[in-house]
């Protein structure tokens, strides 16, 4: 994982204030949406807590940080694009889909095909030796389950319950 490169606007103070003029604000939101997705992808971050600290939302080198309202707007715009979802009713925790569920499903299928895998527990996919160093490593459990469900619908996988949640697994029929 290389160093994350911030875009020019991240060091330009007004981008940390929600812009009052509509056109300018739309451009600002667009830039932040792209940045949030790219940042989360780079750091494999799936959930942003609006009330917690999130490194991206504060740039200490220029002493600026996003207001609560700005964070809410940017995440709201991602949700409208289908690239994020609120995880709770109070809209405090936000799931960031820097890769769509659909694309996670494809990635998973490609992985088991290439490696000739037929059986894996969810835990193995998330943090096992086989996926270590691949893009699948560190996948959010909730996201993984939804990706598997898509494969189930396509008849490419079947989920089974283990004796504990750690043993929940997937049987793949990739071909």
């Amino acid at each position: 994982m290389g160093e994350f490169t911030f875009p020019y606007f991240y060091n330009y103070p007004p981008y940390f204030t929600l812009q009052p003029v509509k056109d300018t604000r739309e451009k600002q939101i667009q830039l932040w949406k792209e940045l949030i997705l790219r940042f989360c992808k780079h750091h494999k971050c799936f959930v942003i807590d609006l009330e917690g600290e999130f490194a991206l939302f504060e740039n200490t080198s220029i002493q600026r940080k996003l207001s609560f309202e700005a964070r809410e707007q940017f995440l709201g715009a991602l949700i409208a694009d289908g690239r994020a979802e609120w995880l709770d009713k109070n809209h405090r925790k936000c799931l960031i889909l820097w890769r769509r569920i659909q694309d996670w499903a494809d990635l998973l299928l490609d992985f088991v095909r290439e490696n000739g895998i037929e059986l894996m527990t969810l835990e193995e996919i998330i943090s096992g030796d086989e996926t270590h160093g691949t893009e699948l490593a560190g996948i959010d459990r909730g996201v993984l389950i939804r990706a598997v469900k898509i494969l189930e619908q396509r008849g490419r996988a079947a989920m089974f319950k283990g004796s504990s949640t750690d043993d929940d697994g997937v049987k793949f029929s990739p071909n």
Partner: peptide, 23 residues
């Protein structure tokens, strides 16, 4: 200038004053 899209406001300055930036 704001309306023309030539300026942006910055309310986060430590001194609390609104800065008008011109890209």
């Amino acid at each position: 200038l704001l309306k023309e899209g030539l300026a942006m406001v910055d309310d986060g300055a430590p001194n609390g004053k609104r800065h008008y930036w011109f890209p």
